[in-house]
Amino acid sequence: MTDPFDALREPVVPLAPRPEFARALRQRIAAELGPDTEGTTMTTHTLAIREYTPARLHSLTPYLATSDPAAAIAWYTDVFDAVLTPGDVILLLSWRDPATAEAFRRQLRMPDGTRVRRVRVVRDYGMFDRREAPQYYPEVRR
């Protein structure tokens, strides 16, 4: 005679909580583990980008010279939050001028739920070309 209570057996069924909760808890854990945790992560492990939040994204100090900085920051948060959400895809495309970009956008066909954002690059610089950089760091020689 089997115990009818055995029918209550419930294995762990994964369930995703609210994304805001997940994000906030992750930040709290990272903070508790200490700043060197992130540093260690970056130098000793190759993790997918969704597994750590670069320190620069925690406080967006805008060097952005746009007419609407608040909207730009909201966009930044928007884009990089998607980077940190498993399953979300980001496509970043660049064009030489606004007309070409607009022409591309007009003929674009994307699935429902896709968001398209347009941004103007005001500084174009990197490790190897520092001419437009807002802070001085020497160029890295290739």
Partner: peptide
């Protein structure tokens, strides 16, 4: 000493299991 980063790396995978266990 390495387990801090490991815990963070585990977080995305572990969170739905922990939350799923508790929510039920």
């Amino acid at each position: 000493a390495d387990q801090g980063p490991l815990l963070l790396a585990l977080y995305d995978r572990a969170l739905p299991h922990v939350y799923g266990y508790l929510a039920a």
